[in-house]
């Protein structure tokens, strides 16, 4: 039971719940800057959880992962996105979320589904983080939901990055992190992806004068 655990293990679970909550806030946000802020907070929460897991399990390489996550996901990429958004003057634009209540309901259903799916995995594990596997899976699926439900490029990129947060969190929760080489590789992949996305934003904006990706359909010479 929860009451018998040491306080830092309780803190891991609390932070995991907050990561899940940050995914929900990402889904509900409409303003571009608010989305980026929520994403930065999610990165910071994941980094904090990783550091606590490192402390709990005594695996020192996890501290490096935590520092990487904090510097990349919580500071650098949000800063990069922020600058792009400012440059393209879309920082005050509100994106509309279609059927916000429906999206939240689907999100809740996804979390329940993840809990159901993760239950057999939980039986195999004995570490404190076994319960957070379901949370990390839901962060992945909620990121996908964000990719599907938004039609603006910036929100989709943030959804993709949050999906990557979920994968990283799953690795930390299930196996105390991936090998260092893989983790470094993934971190730099994400970094490069962020830069490339930035370039793409400009290209999309140049060619269709909007970041609404549903307008890209018009380029494929089918009828309207």
């Amino acid at each position: 039971m929860l009451a018998g655990l040491p306080i830092y293990q309780q803190a891991i679970l609390l932070l995991a719940a907050l990561v899940l909550f940050s995914s929900f806030t990402l889904l509900a946000q409409t303003r571009v800057t608010a989305i980026i802020h929520a994403f930065a907070w999610q990165g910071a929460l994941v980094a904090m959880t990783t550091a606590l897991v490192a402390f709990d399990s005594g695996k020192h390489h996890l501290y490096i992962s935590a520092a990487l996550t904090l510097s990349l996901k919580a500071l650098f990429i949000p800063w990069l996105l922020h600058r792009l958004v400012k440059k393209m003057r879309i920082d005050r634009v509100a994106h509309t979320v279609e059927h916000p209540a429906l999206v939240l309901m689907i999100a809740t259903a996804l979390v329940i589904f993840c809990y159901y799916v993760a239950q057999p995995i939980q039986q195999l594990e004995h570490s404190i983080t076994r319960n957070t596997i379901a949370i990390s899976m839901s962060v992945v699926l909620l990121g996908m939901l964000m990719l599907v439900s938004r039609n603006k490029a910036v929100s989709q990129v943030v959804g993709f990055m949050s999906l990557e947060n979920g994968l990283f969190f799953a690795a930390v929760a299930a196996t105390h992190g991936m090998p260092m080489v893989v983790e470094l590789g993934v971190a730099f992949d994400v970094l490069v992806a962020a830069v490339i996305f930035g370039v793409f934003f400009f290209h999309i904006k140049d060619s269709i004068d909007s970041l609404n990706v549903s307008e890209l359909n018009r380029l494929s010479e089918t009828d309207e």
Partner: peptide, 23 residues
Amino acid sequence: AFLVLALTLSVIGLLSHIILEIN
């Protein structure tokens, strides 16, 4: 929207109890 936030918070509370706190 404000009250949907309240509902979402309490649903997440319920879910996190089931996922994280039992067993």
